[in-house]
Simulated assay, not measured.
Amino acid sequence: MATTLTALRRQIDSAGDLKSVVRTMKASAASAIGQYERSVAALADYSHTVEQGLGVCLRSAERMSSPTTRLSSRPDNILLRAVVFGSDQGLVGRFNEVVVEHSVTALTQTTSKVWTVGERAHARLIDAGIQPEGRFEVPGSVELITRLVGEILTKIQTPDANAKNETQPTALILFYNRPTAVGYAPVSQQLLPLDANWQHELASRPWPGAQRPEVLDTSVQTLRAFIREHLFVSLFRACAESLASENASRLAAMQRADRNIGELLAALHAHFHRLRQTGIDEELFDVVSGFDALSSSDTT
């Protein structure tokens, strides 16, 4: 009995320690979610500014018959460059499985080069029969997202030395999880070629001021500069939203773990008290039996 009670007490202590760890991870995940959501909100004003400038450049390019129309073409032999955002750490539920399943269909339908953000998504793409070109580490804070975006842009824009057709048109698409009211959902975003309808919408968007600005410098160079900023903003937002979704998934997993540990602790405490009461009852029964035996011998 003593051994059983000791073992139960150890289980209760271990479950209590694990509950403390889970609560710490819950607090950390909740804090991280707010951090990344605030970064996305702060990026909105800059993104709006970039789109306004890009719209001005597109209007100027249309008047000058710039060859930007090729950015919106989608030939059949296009080379797809894709970035799949996942996680490096576990305890995130089906976070990585969801985004990989969402990306596999598109990646297997055309010639593609894939890079992953996170070791877990990298491994699951390999399991799905897709060999990524490379892997990036998941940034641990908002400050590190900028460095990751720079690494991604440098890598995907580097010409392939082994490419047989250097003039083959390319596209760039992102796969990541986006926060929703009930958790997160997988989404895909095509960055290049620029969507023709989106370009037309930007070019026809009314200017907030009384007089529309004009591009004084070479319009093509200015347009390319705004496109680079558009790529930066889109990649930064995708990474921040993926990190917010990752922490939301981890928070949900920790909440389930906290609830399960609480139920386990309640069951262990109940079992412990039953065994302890049983031990006390047995000891009392032994005392009563011994007293009865002594009383019988004295009477004899």
Rank of each mutant, 00 (worst) to 15 (best):
A2Q: 10
D76T: 15
Q35H: 12
V56S: 07
W207G: 10
L43V: 09
L194N: 01
R9M: 12
A181Y: 08
Q89F: 15
D292V: 13
E37A: 13
V215R: 02
P179Y: 04
V142L: 00
G86E: 02
N96P: 13
S249E: 02
N247K: 07
V287T: 10
A27W: 10
S188V: 03
D258H: 11
G262T: 12
A61Q: 04
L71K: 12
D258L: 07
I130L: 07
L264R: 13
C239G: 02
S65L: 11
D88S: 14
L231V: 12
V50N: 03
L243H: 00
G55A: 06
S87T: 14
Y46W: 11
S14G: 01
T68R: 12
T108N: 07
V104N: 05
V182N: 08
L172P: 07
E201I: 10
A128K: 01
R38N: 12
V215A: 00
I12C: 08
S28R: 13
L5Y: 00
H122T: 01
V117D: 00
G290I: 10
L192Y: 03
R94T: 14
A196Y: 13
L18W: 10
L284G: 04
P67G: 10
P139L: 07
N165V: 04
V22L: 02
R212A: 01
I280P: 11
G290A: 11
R81D: 08
C239A: 12
F272K: 04
T105H: 04
A196C: 13
I126G: 02
P139F: 06
C57D: 04
Q89V: 15
F226V: 00
K164L: 11
R259E: 15
L235S: 03
S289M: 14
V114E: 01
R94L: 15
A27Q: 11
T180L: 01
L235P: 04
P159H: 04
L223V: 10
R205K: 09
P186H: 01
E137D: 15
Y46M: 02
A248V: 05
H122Q: 07
E62V: 15
V40C: 05
G53V: 03
W198D: 07
V287Y: 03
C57R: 08
H122P: 00
A121E: 03
L79Q: 11
R250L: 05
H122V: 06
T49A: 00
V149C: 09
C57K: 02
G34Y: 12
A44R: 05
E101N: 10
E137W: 13
S204I: 13
K113T: 06
S112D: 08
Q131Y: 04
C239M: 08
R9Q: 14
L91F: 15
E119H: 11
P179K: 09
Y176F: 05
Q189R: 11
V187A: 05
E51I: 05
A163G: 08
F226G: 01
L71S: 14
D298V: 15
F285Q: 09
A238T: 08
A252Q: 02
R147I: 00
V84W: 00
Q11T: 09
S141F: 04
R63W: 09
K164D: 13
V233F: 01
T24E: 15
E143L: 03
F272C: 08
L284E: 07
L54R: 05
